[in-house]
Design a protein around this nucleic acid. Structure first.
Lengths: 217, 217
DNA sequence: ATAGTTACCGAACGTTCGTTCGAAAATAAG
DNA sequence: CTTATTTTCGAACGAACGTTCGGTAACTAT
């Protein structure tokens, strides 16, 4: 049983203590590994390099995870679970569907600006996972997709007709995810401002499109 | 001098003949390599596997390219050059900025539906190239970006005010590329219809947004 | 047929990688 | 201090990879 695969509530009978310093090192390890994997990709990242960056040995890394794939899984699972929880809270807060969409867009971009490496890995490297690892992360991803898709569908079937809304709103949802995820490749705080501003612009585009037709007021 | 690095017009003094069957095999090699790299990623794709899929030997592959990186470069260069040329022609055809944007979106998606593997590689694996390879493909990518960015800027500074249009239209352009590129992860002909239909929906979103406000007519 | 070029392959090399193992060091408990 | 547990490491293994080399087969032109 390695450090990273331990649940916060210890399994009885196994492993008496995990020192607080070790937990902190585990977090630092995840962060460092995420930085390297975001830069060079999962396959191209060597565990030796993670160890080197932490001034630790190669073998010492295997005290924290039992395989390179589990390391990738832990990064993705923890990141996605954290994002999902934050966004579910945001979605539950009261407001019109419009308000809630705006808050979700800003929430996603805010999370991204604080964890760019981890988010890039969640976006690019799901398919580097296999078996249970893959299925578990995929399920989180699906839950997150539904969160957004339900809201978009609700938004579109409101004042408009209901027929054919499902297939079309699916694509609108995926357009939105495209905008969100592609931001990894270009966002710069200096050029593009805060997540709030960026999310606001994205929201305006989704609701009104480019401001071509003069707003009728 | 390998087969793939030969220009159509032969270099004098080097290499008398390249058989037509060999050119055909080179094309098949690029296609097969693209399929594997699109599925498993560049790093995770072994040249041995490309050879196996073509019923050829490992060493025989090196008659066609001189390094794995050159193989990746050739896939990206040829794909991007072909896309760029097609889209430049489309952009030059007469029409309002709106018409031309619509045609460009459909053109991109049409190209993508005929070359999904190659396009996925162009999107995901630019950073697996280095040096001159990287710079050359990057320059193609920039030219393609400008093609779209100029049109979006023209569209947005038209009926609207001109101030602040530049930084904002940059982001709208990148939103559009996000929608286009993310389609790799979800597009299905059966579910989503033709490239024309998809491009049309994307165009509508960019121009009018979700159809929330009743169209004023 | 034969000579010259083009296309291909078996075998091997050197490197890098993920993973394991046994032992040592560091830390906490009695 | 002594003992038990947690944490770290050096060394090594086997597998997989990109690349090279000398030779051979296939093809073309004369």
């Amino acid at each position: 049983m390695t450090v990273l695969s331990l649940r916060p509530q210890a399994i009885p009978g196994r492993r008496e203590r995990v020192r607080k310093a070790t937990q902190r090192k585990a977090d630092e390890l995840l962060q460092t590994a995420a930085a390297l994997m975001a830069e060079k990709g999962f396959e191209a990242t060597a565990i030796r390099d993670v160890g080197r960056k932490l001034d630790a040995s190669l073998a010492g890394m295997y005290y924290y995870f039992k395989s390179k794939e589990e390391l990738l899984y832990q990064i993705q699972y923890r990141t996605f679970a954290s994002l999902l929880q934050a966004q579910q809270q945001i979605a539950e807060r009261p407001g019109t569907p419009k308000d809630r969409l705006r808050r979700l867009l800003i929430g996603h971009l805010t999370f991204f600006t604080s964890h760019p490496n981890e988010m890039k890995i969640c976006t690019y490297e799901l398919e580097s996972l296999t078996g249970e690892y893959y299925n578990t992360v995929l399920e989180l991803r699906r839950r997150y997709y539904r969160l957004m898709a339900d809201l978009v569908a609700q938004l579109m079937t409101g004042p408009a007709r209901k027929a054919r809304a499902s297939a079309h709103s699916r694509r609108v949802t995926l357009f939105v995810f495209g905008m969100l995820n592609w931001a990894f490749t270009w966002y710069s705080q200096a050029k593009d401002g805060t997540a709030e501003k960026l999310g606001g612009e994205m929201f305006d585009l989704v609701i009104n499109g480019i401001g071509l037709e003069p707003l009728n007021r």
